[in-house]
């Protein structure tokens, strides 16, 4: 037994929200469980109530249309995402991100909703969704609201979810027909590793094929929460992305967006030097991956 708790399987969103509100800090909402149960094994976070929302209908499935964009149920697994033909074709940067999560066994259980709600600064699924301009559909006892993902995180492992709210779906607009996306994870090892740095880039260029018309950059493990690098993004707009020097000049700005500090895993100076180097490099990779219809 990993812990003693009461196990609840709400049949509806309202029921889930009511349970969450009722149990407050003594309860935990769980979908796949790959984060929560791992912690319970360590005896870290012990809860009296587990609210299993894995089978709630509204949280299931991947829906997509050109006009509505992508809608991912919070209980959709990483594996479902990486295998989905439309996501592979149109949202490749997301596939790049979730593929670096854990192992096959973890991706088969872990959900995108769980990745977001655990709110780890290193989460590999969040950065790509940030640059794809994703939004969170949140259900509470008072009704539904939608919050841009970039506003979802409020502090270390903290989110905007109220006591009675759960994440239901993640919506992602249809990206431009032609864009470049890239996810770069830097770690000591290539897999089964917590990112020392995770960089996600989404960019669009004008008809000339090189002038940046849209740029979104997300940084993982660079701040207490996953963030967008807005100053660096602004720098790139209107710049010639085919010019390596121009792309790399952003390294002088990037530390205004994020300035990682010392940790036992890496020295702050090293992490900052990596950011300066790897953000432009990931932009170049994304530019190189520019998809054209």
């Amino acid at each position: 037994m990993i812990a003693r708790f009461d196990y609840h399987v709400p049949a509806s969103l309202d029921e889930a929200c009511a349970l969450k509100k009722e149990y407050g800090n003594t309860g935990i909402v769980v979908a796949g469980g790959s984060d929560v149960y791992a912690k319970m094994h360590l005896g870290d976070h012990l809860y009296d109530h587990v609210i299993d929302i894995k089978k709630i209908e509204d949280m299931q499935g991947i829906r997509w249309s050109e006009t509505e964009g992508l809608s991912l149920g919070a209980a959709v697994t990483h594996h479902e995402i990486e295998r989905h033909p439309v996501i592979k074709e149109r949202y490749d940067v997301l596939v790049q991100g979730v593929r670096t999560i854990g192992s096959l066994q973890v991706r088969n259980r872990g959900t995108i909703g769980g990745n977001i709600c655990t709110a780890a600064p290193s989460a590999d699924g969040i950065g790509p969704l940030l640059v794809l301009d994703a939004s969170c559909v949140i259900h509470g006892l008072g009704g539904e609201r939608t919050v841009p993902l970039k506003d979802f995180f409020t502090g270390p492992k903290q989110t905007v979810l109220a006591d009675d709210e759960v994440l239901v779906r993640v919506t992602v607009p249809t990206p431009a027909p032609s864009y470049g996306g890239a996810y770069f994870k830097y770690g000591r090892r290539n897999a089964m590793e917590i990112a020392l740095l995770g960089i996600s880039v989404y960019l669009e260029v004008a008809d000339d094929g090189k002038t940046c018309s849209a740029m979104r950059i997300a940084l993982g493990t660079s701040a207490p929460i996953p963030i967008r690098a807005q100053k660096t993004e602004a720098y790139y707009i209107g710049k010639d992305l085919s010019d390596r020097q121009v792309v790399e000049a952003a390294s002088s700005i990037i530390l205004e967006d994020a300035s990682p500090r010392n940790s036992w895993r890496a020295d702050g100076e090293f992490r900052r030097s990596l950011l300066k180097l790897l953000v432009p490099r990931t932009v170049r990779t994304a530019y190189g991956a520019l998809t054209r219809e």
């Binding site: 196990y7 469980g33 587990v50 066994q105 259980r109």
Partner: peptide, 10 residues
């Protein structure tokens, strides 16, 4: 394939 430690029996 999943890790049986990371799933509840229920």
């Amino acid at each position: 394939p999943v890790y049986a430690n990371l799933m509840l029996a229920l």
